[in-house]
Structures are given as C-alpha cells and as structure tokens.
Amino acid sequence: MKRLWILILLVVALPGCLMAQQLTDYNKKGDEAMARKDYSDARMWYEEGVAQCDSYSIDRLTSIWKTNKQMRVSMRSLMTKCLNCLLQKAGADDTVAISQLIVYYTDGIGVSANEKMALNWHKRLETLRKPYVSHEERKPREPMKFFVGYAFSVEAPYGLTVGGVGERFGWYARFRTNMSFDDYSTECKGTGEIMPNPENQSYKFTNEKKVNCLAASAGLVVKCNSWLYTSVGLGYGKRELLYEYTTTDRNDSSKQNTYWAKHIDNSYEGVAADLDFMVRFGHIYVSAGCNTINFKYVDLNAGVGVFF
C-alpha cells in the first residue's frame, strides 16, 4: 500500500516538479527581472534559452526589442540568433515560428527589413492553416460529355439513345419501337380460344404473326473506367403479340373475313427495365445488354453511337 501511494505521488507531482524546474532556470529568472523592469538582466537570462532555441525565451526577447529601443544596438547579434532559431522551427512547419518570422522581416528584427520575405512567409502560413487538399481534390472536375446513338433490340429495331456522363456518373434516355402499331379486334389464349367467340361463324388461325412493340426508359450511367460504362434504367414498355385468323359464316361459306387477335398469354405492358454495358473507342461507343417488361419478357439490346 505504501508503494502505491509513493507511485501516485510521483505521477501527480513529477510534471509539476519538471515545470517548476524549467521556470526556476533562465525563463523564471528572466520573468522576475522583467517584473522589476530590469531588461538588461532579463535579456541575459533569456539569452541562455536562445542557445536551445527556446520559443518562450525568443518571444520575451522580441518583446524587449520592441519596447526598449535604447537596447537594440546591444541586442542585434542576439536577435540574429533568434532569427536563425525561428528559421529552423519554420522549416518544420511551426506556425508560431512562421508568425514571428513575418514580424522579424517586416520590422527588420535580426535582419534587414524585407517585405518580399515577409510576404513569402505569410503565404506559407496561409497554406499551412488551410485544410489539406489532396491531389485528386485539386484536379479540375471533368466536364460532362454527351452522347447520342442508335438503339436496337430484337423486337424493337428502331431506337434512339441520348445521354451524358461526367467524372463518375451520368444519365441516359432511350426510346425503341418496331414501327408497328396495328390494331386488333379480339383477344385469344394459348389454347387457341378467341374471346369473345364469333357468333354464327367458324374461325381458323393462319400462320401469320406480328408484334407491336415500344419502350421508353431513362436511368443512370456509371463510368467504370476511361473506356467502360454501365447503365441501368426504368420506364414503360408494351409488347403485343398478334395472331391472324379468318372467320367463315356458318350459313354462307363464301363470306370470309380476316382479323387480328392479341395473344394475352404472351403480351405484356408495364414496367420496362434496361441493363447495358458500353465500350468506348475514342469518340465511338458500342453497347450490349438486355431489357425486360414486367420482368416476364426479356429481349436483347445493342447500340452504337458517338460522344461529343
């Protein structure tokens, strides 16, 4: 227990003892001389600190220089030593030392007055006081580059894509269609049943089929590197699969007509989604990917275009 108390006492008292020892040397005696306005004696004690580049001693000697003009002649060499200490500390980016150097070069303390040097150290101080900015952050932001191109899919071969990409991200908008907008009169199911069933008529499907297809989407472009991009987007899409059929009047077989029916099991309308990759070759790009409607029907995408 006794040892524990001794240890605690050392931990608490040791910093105070060290501080007291520092103050009882040249700095404390210099402060005592300053208190009684004996500046010659104070200069002598603070001069011991200059030999160790003591910042406190240098600061006190600078105060004596400023307030006691009659002592400046005897202090010139001493202030030059202070200047050398400040230069050494400033080389290690000591902002307090740099602030003092600005005063030294402005007022001509320990050196001839030099406004250019004072300005240089002032700029250095401002640089150190500003938050550090990395090389990447200092680089100018890359301007957005726009692109336009032809968009193709298996069932919608006519399309247009436009967009823009900045340093990392961008946008795009796309429209595709197969230029088919044919109407239909009825609907049918996979079993071959027409709804509603023609009255007093028999019907028969031909082998003719066609598709009405269109889609519009927009989304995000991500720049993976200088030549590879990926894009993902959402929008609206519609795919109508039409079957051709003929009807014959049960009472007069010469009366025949041809109609189109929408196959409801293979027709979709709703949310369209795109996923594409773009590879850039200079100002030219090619793309490939896929699209879906309601996540039930999938078609393949392709495209080619230019950046400008």
Rank of each mutant, 00 (worst) to 15 (best):
R3E: 13
R3K: 14
W5I: 12
I6Q: 07
I8Y: 14
L9Y: 04
L10C: 13
L10V: 15
V11L: 15
A13C: 13
P15S: 12
M19C: 07
Q21P: 00
K37E: 15
D41H: 00
R43N: 15
R43T: 15
M44S: 12
Y46S: 05
Y56I: 05
I58M: 15
D59S: 13
S63C: 00
N68A: 05
M75H: 04
K81E: 10
L83I: 00
L86T: 03
K89E: 11
G91W: 01
T95D: 09
Q100K: 13
Q100C: 01
Y105H: 10
D107S: 05
G108F: 03
G108Y: 10
I109A: 01
W121D: 06
W121N: 09
K123F: 14
K130A: 14
V133S: 14
S134R: 08
E142M: 14
K145R: 10
G149I: 04
Y150V: 03
A151Q: 09
A156N: 01
G159A: 05
G163S: 06
G163D: 04
E167D: 11
R168W: 02
W171M: 04
W171Y: 15
M179F: 08
S185T: 14
S185V: 04
K189E: 11
G190T: 12
G192E: 07
P198A: 13
N207Q: 08
A215Q: 11
S217W: 02
Y229V: 00
S231V: 00
S231P: 01
G233F: 06
G237D: 06
L241D: 11
S253I: 10
Q256K: 09
N257S: 15
N257C: 03
A261I: 10
K262N: 12
H263A: 13
N266I: 01
A273R: 08
A273H: 02
L275R: 09
D276R: 10
V286G: 12
C290V: 07
K296S: 11
K296C: 05
